[in-house]
Amino acid sequence: MGIKSNQWGTVSFGNQLDMTEEFVYLYNISAWASGYAIHQGDFDRMNGDRLPNSVKYMSPDYGGFTFGGVYSFGNVSGNFHQNSAWSVGAHYARNTFNLGVAYTQLNNPNGIYAFDPYAMIGAHTFLGQPTVTIDPAIGARTDLFSANPFSVDRQGALAVGGAWTLGNLMLSGNFTWTSIKGLGVTSYMKVYEAGASYNFRPDLALYGGYQHTRF
């Protein structure tokens, strides 16, 4: 639900995509190449994620430049901050070059979605805490946070991406920097990704790229 003006932009309400998806998601080469691949655990929200209970503003196009922001209310009685989130971003496109940047912050992300480190990245420990137990007899693993989400205070993700088109060839890349804070500890993830696509025909394209993650 929302209101749109060609002069002033669009204000909308509901379960909505954040600015990372609006302005940087399309530079995720791995998603284009396979339809399934995303950055590890989707901690940087490059998989096209939504924010619930949100109000969102998207600007009109000013000569190729657009910007926007969204705020998600936590819906926790007596606590305006808990489970809330916000996201801002901008995009510029001119001729064959385009560039996007966005920052999204989740407060208590375990309340926004099920935060399960073992299921998301296969880590046996996260922020200094064990995420699984292992049966010494048979080696069976039990995910400690499959039913109750891992408690995280804050998750912030900065994303930058760009693309340059040269005829049938498009060069593209992105960088994301994510911080996750909880239990008095902060962990950081950096993702570097670059690649290209080539259109042989309108119905045939080849994508390739390389992704490197440091956590």
Rank of each mutant, 00 (worst) to 15 (best):
F126G: 00
N98E: 12
N107D: 10
P117Q: 06
P130I: 01
Q105D: 03
L106D: 11
F97S: 04
F97V: 12
T125L: 02
F126N: 01
Y118P: 07
G128V: 06
A114F: 08
G111Q: 05
L99G: 00
A123H: 08
V132P: 04
A102Q: 13
A114N: 15
Y118I: 07
Q129E: 14
G122W: 10
D116L: 11
R94Q: 09
F126W: 08
N95V: 04
L127Q: 05
T131F: 03
F115S: 02
A114K: 15
Y103H: 14
V132G: 06
N107T: 11
T96K: 08
F115N: 00
I112G: 06
F97C: 03
A119N: 15
A114R: 14
N107Q: 10
P109W: 02
Q129Y: 09
T104R: 10
N98A: 01
V101I: 15
A119K: 15
T96F: 10
M120V: 07
T96C: 04
G128P: 05
T131E: 02
F126H: 02
I112K: 06
N110S: 04
G111Y: 01
T104C: 08
T96E: 13
I112T: 09
T133Q: 07
A93W: 01
Y113T: 14
P117E: 03
N98L: 00
N98C: 00
Y103Q: 07
H124I: 11
T104K: 09
Q129P: 04
R94A: 09
G128A: 06
A119V: 08
A102F: 13
M120E: 13
N95L: 05
I112Y: 06
V101Y: 09
G128Q: 05
N108W: 02
I121D: 10
L99Y: 06
T133G: 03
G100W: 00
V101P: 01
L99R: 00
P130Q: 03
N110E: 08
A114H: 15
I121H: 07
G128D: 06
F115C: 02
N95E: 11
M120P: 07
T125E: 10
N107R: 10
Y113M: 12
Y103C: 03
M120H: 09
G100D: 01
N107H: 13
Q129M: 14
V101A: 15
M120W: 08
N110L: 00
I112W: 05
L99H: 01
A102N: 12
N108G: 08
T96Q: 13
R94S: 11
A123R: 08
T131P: 04
I121T: 15
Q129W: 03
N107W: 04
N95G: 02
A123K: 07
T104Y: 09
M120R: 14
Y118A: 08
Y103R: 10
I112H: 05
Y113Q: 13
